[in-house]
């Protein structure tokens, strides 16, 4: 993750979590956190491969 951010991925766009199948509440919290932090960052403009344009 450090190298990803080092090469220009915004902090917060890549997240890791460890959630047991029994931790439903944690799962919901993490999903909420991730979506809100990624929404705050806006769409990813850098690490994105454009589809090849065919004439």
């Amino acid at each position: 993750m450090n190298l990803m951010e080092h090469m220009g991925i915004e902090p917060g766009r890549l997240q890791f979590s460890w959630i047991s199948s029994a931790e439903s509440t944690k799962f919901v919290e993490v999903v909420k956190d991730v979506t809100s932090s990624v929404k705050a960052l806006g769409p990813n403009t850098t690490y994105k491969k454009q589809a090849v344009k065919v004439a």
Partner: peptide, 17 residues
């Protein structure tokens, strides 16, 4: 050199690489 890049903003880092 690593620290010089670490100090940059994400956009700058992206452009550097």
């Amino acid at each position: 050199e690593v620290r010089r890049i670490e100090a940059m903003e994400s956009q700058e880092k992206w452009q550097y690489f």
